[in-house]
Amino acid sequence: MPRIKLCGLRRLVDIDYANQVQPDLVGVVFAPESFRAVTGDQAQRLRQRLDAKIPMVGVFTTTPLARIMTLVQAGIIQQVQLHGPINDDRVTALQAAKIPVMQAVTPVNATQSQANTVLLDNVNPGSGQPLAWSAIARPKRPFFLAGGLTPDNVTNAIQVLQPAGVDVSSGIETAGVKDFKKIQVFMRSVRNVNNN
């Protein structure tokens, strides 16, 4: 049964949407180059609003390790998602602190990360461009699938690659903001696959 991560949440209303549909994880972006980026203070307000049962994942590119640790220790994020070059030292340091780590990988380097989980994504994450699911080799370890997932294509993607989880951001947006109707349809699509 694939787990569901709704990523790129940045408004309080986005958290209200998540609380209603109950995904397995939500993601907040700390990468400054992303238009979805939030500050530590914003993330804290989002965490306070979020159902305590739903872990919040912090998404990072070049953020210093000490800053990531601070956000975890403050209880703002419960897991870490790393993008960019695979850096086993960062992964090992986070894991030593008992922090679950997800590493974004492309189909080419999916075997190289020592993270707890890998996230199979595009070279340009957050772009909304779908991966060619039928043309890629399925990683030999549990993985989350990202890369252009939408309410319309997620069922096919799950059937082809059988991921442990799915991660969506742009696919549940309209004009760059989260769209509750799209979120509902996405959740229903994944759960229907689970039930069949």
Rank of each mutant, 00 (worst) to 15 (best):
P23V: 02
A93H: 07
D16H: 12
R3Q: 11
V13K: 13
L149V: 13
P107S: 06
Q184C: 15
V166T: 13
S113W: 09
Q159P: 00
A96D: 12
V118L: 14
R10D: 02
R47I: 07
Q78M: 02
D24M: 00
M102E: 10
V72G: 05
L119G: 02
A74G: 01
T106I: 15
L46T: 01
Q95Y: 08
I172Q: 10
N192D: 15
Q20D: 13
I4T: 01
A115Y: 08
D51A: 14
R10S: 08
G27Y: 06
N192T: 15
P100G: 03
L120S: 05
N109W: 13
N116Y: 08
P125C: 02
Q81E: 10
G8L: 04
L65V: 07
V72T: 14
T62L: 06
C7H: 08
K182T: 07
V185N: 05
R49E: 08
S189G: 02
D88A: 14
G8C: 05
I4C: 00
H83V: 00
G8D: 03
I99Q: 01
T174N: 14
R47K: 13
V101P: 03
N116D: 15
T62N: 12
I172G: 08
V108H: 15
D41W: 07
P163E: 07
A93V: 05
F35C: 11
T92M: 11
L9G: 03
Q73I: 04
V38E: 09
V38P: 08
V101A: 07
A74D: 14
S189K: 04
L119R: 01
S170Y: 05
P85T: 12
I99D: 00
G27A: 11
K98L: 10
A164C: 06
L9K: 05
R49F: 07
V193Q: 05
W133C: 10
D51M: 11
L25I: 14
G165W: 06
S134G: 05
N153C: 11
V190F: 02
D167Y: 10
P23M: 01
R141F: 04
L82V: 04
A43W: 03
R47H: 01
R47N: 03
P151H: 10
Y17G: 02
L131Q: 03
G128C: 05
L71D: 01
M102N: 08
Q73Y: 05
P151K: 08
V72W: 08
A37M: 11
F60L: 09
G75F: 07
A135E: 12
G147W: 06
D14R: 10
I86V: 15
V29D: 06
V108Y: 13
Q20S: 12
P139I: 00
A43F: 02
G147C: 12
G8K: 00
I136Q: 04
A43Q: 01
D24W: 01
N153M: 11
A115V: 12
L12W: 04
I68T: 07
Q159H: 14
F60N: 04
K5E: 02
V160E: 14
T92W: 07
T106W: 12
